[in-house]
Design a protein around this nucleic acid. Structure first.
Lengths: 201, 201
DNA sequence: CAATATACTGTATATAATTACAGTAAAACT
DNA sequence: AGTTTTACTGTAATTATATACAGTATATTG
């Protein structure tokens, strides 16, 4: 998807704002009036350009027939099984996506991860639950993190983190702490768990 | 706000669906075509009636100028502490409301209830969690229900239900089953738990 | 039992809106 | 240097849309 020019972006924002304010897209004349064009055709041609670049779709013959193409930035992916090796957010891991506007929880969620196994049941994280993961939230000691150890993704509580020792604790008395030497094993903290969804009880 | 007739409700839903699908409201002709009216005026008059009852606003002169009035029905209330005596959904119990989400969780959630206590931790329901409650979902044996016993609201698993014996089980080994005789104690099953939200981990 | 609300058909018209065509001018590629 | 893209003005035709007016019929309410 090509980049929009400054003016085109301005028009796309105007459309979004109009929809947010009134609930329906503007007409060519509305756009022209707002931006001071003396001809509705100026708006028309901008719309065609924006459509060509893939950001909107113009429904011909319909008044206000401007459809916003769901940009991926407005969708939060739900990650099912993470294929070994690749990045978590790789296409093949995305089970579905949830529109951000429908998100009831923290706005800081980058993706949802479907929980496998019972290693976190003691703090109420069950198999099939969806965990809201934030990549930017600070990973403090004691927080629940998404970690990748030698290409395997896991959700655990972060207990200790120093240069040559990282301790990840399963919240289930049947499991033992995972102790990693980052100099020996490959370790990456992918994000912090900030919310939880259970779709059926 | 007066109640809509069946037909009017049908039209309001059509408008909402149209907006959800395409991003803008339908025209009178669209409505007429969808519902099989032979005159766009039929749609026009329905719209006027729906506006009169306060559910929409019609912007005169604007094509597709139908604005949905934020009806409370699009918001799901979050119930904090339930005051003894009154109905669960009483105004004073509503902690906040959250917009109804279509894709995220079951569309059948009437309200969220904030969990107090630790009686359900064994199945991953923790204090401060929000439970999505459906009033209409069938209350089967084995399902987690919201029950009111002598004016106190509680969340438990329904184990047995007969004319003179109802058994509610806390999912926590430190608690005992609650055995009620509905002929002695006042008991009402308010709904079933169909989803769960945890706003922070 | 009359008035009002509901639920439409049918026709007509003003206006709202899309959209095509003909230009101008500057900037950005190729 | 020539073509394409961007960014508009200006005009006009066609179509889309709202909306008024005139009816019909049944149901509901005061």
């Amino acid at each position: 998807m090509k980049n929009l020019t400054k003016r085109q972006e301005e028009i796309l924002n105007l459309i979004k704002t109009h929809i947010l304010d009134l609930g329906f897209p503007p007409t060519r004349a509305d756009i022209a009036k707002t931006l001071g064009f003396k001809s509705p055709n100026a708006a028309e041609q901008h719309l065609r350009a924006i459509e060509k670049k893939g950001f909107i779709k113009i429904l011909s013959g319909a008044s206000r027939g401007i459809v916003l193409n769901d940009s991926e930035s407005d969708q939060i992916p739900v990650i099912g099984l993470v294929a070994a090796g690749g990045p978590i957010l790789a296409e093949e891991n995305i089970e579905k996506t949830i529109p951000k506007s429908n998100n009831l929880l923290s706005s800081d969620i980058d993706y949802y991860l479907r929980v496998k196994g019972d290693s976190m049941v003691d703090i109420g994280i069950f198999e099939e639950d969806l965990i809201g993961v934030s990549k930017s939230a600070s990973t403090k000691i004691g927080s629940v993190v998404v970690a990748r150890i030698n290409n395997e993704v896991t959700v655990k509580t972060l207990i200790e983190m120093s240069q040559n020792k990282v301790v990840l604790r399963p919240e289930n008395q049947n499991y033992n702490d995972i102790i990693i030497n980052p100099k020996v094993d490959e370790l990456a903290i992918e994000g912090s768990c900030v919310a939880l969804l259970r779709e059926s009880i």
